Simulated scan of single mutants.
Amino acid sequence: MTQRLDKQTFQTVVAHTPLISLDLIVENIDGQVLLGQRLNKPAQGYWFVPGGRVLKDETMEHAFSRLTREELGVELQLSDATLIGPFEHFYDDNFSGDDFTTHYVVLGYRLTLDVLLNHLPQEQHAHYQWLDVAALLGADDVHYHTKLYFITN
């Protein structure tokens, strides 16, 4: 059974351990990449790919299906995507403030999907856009960790 931790317990975990997460590198049929403007720390205000953390006792398959449902509004299977590799993300802040850092070990998954921007969930991202890779790499407001998915692959 998967579970979310209460705020205080989660703060302790984030302060002392890396988190495991899945990032969804979503491309449409034109090769543009889906980005959302983050509402929450870390990376608040930056354009970032959708994704999220794996919960305790959650299989990778279940995490992927849950995250695609929560972040893209459509439930997909892990077999619908291609693993592009492990990445590490380091942030000077955390979900609750600036008093400790956040470290993610991220598995990046690439998939092709055409979604309407106005139908995407608004819980984690205020706005969405499709960007060409060249524009994404040149934009100051696209987060460095998102750019790494295209610099290294």
Rank of each mutant, 00 (worst) to 15 (best):
residue 41 K to M: 10
residue 141 D to I: 13
residue 80 D to L: 08
residue 19 L to Q: 13
residue 79 S to F: 10
residue 39 L to P: 00
residue 92 D to A: 12
residue 35 L to W: 04
residue 83 L to F: 15
residue 54 V to L: 13
residue 68 T to F: 09
residue 116 L to C: 07
residue 22 L to H: 05
residue 96 S to Q: 09
residue 88 E to A: 14
residue 101 T to G: 05
residue 56 K to P: 04
residue 141 D to S: 14
residue 36 G to R: 00
residue 103 H to A: 05
residue 131 L to G: 02
residue 106 V to A: 10
residue 69 R to G: 01
residue 129 Q to K: 15
residue 45 G to H: 10
residue 17 T to M: 10
residue 110 R to C: 02
residue 35 L to I: 04
residue 14 V to S: 03
residue 86 P to V: 07
residue 23 D to G: 12
residue 63 A to Y: 06
residue 5 L to V: 00
residue 19 L to A: 06
residue 50 P to D: 06
residue 40 N to A: 09
residue 44 Q to F: 10
residue 61 E to W: 12
residue 122 Q to N: 09
residue 41 K to S: 12
residue 53 R to D: 08
residue 24 L to F: 08
residue 150 F to Q: 04
residue 84 I to S: 05
residue 31 G to A: 10
residue 113 L to G: 03
residue 144 Y to H: 11
residue 103 H to G: 00
residue 144 Y to Q: 13
residue 44 Q to G: 04
residue 47 W to N: 02
residue 137 L to I: 04
residue 63 A to C: 14
residue 71 E to L: 08
residue 127 H to R: 06
residue 152 T to L: 14
residue 28 N to D: 15
residue 109 Y to G: 06
residue 31 G to W: 05
residue 139 A to S: 15
residue 52 G to C: 07
residue 32 Q to G: 02
residue 125 H to V: 01
residue 24 L to M: 04
residue 63 A to R: 00
residue 131 L to F: 01
residue 106 V to F: 03
residue 48 F to R: 02
residue 143 H to K: 05
residue 48 F to N: 05
residue 116 L to S: 12
residue 115 V to Y: 05
residue 132 D to W: 11
residue 109 Y to E: 08
residue 140 D to R: 00
residue 152 T to R: 15
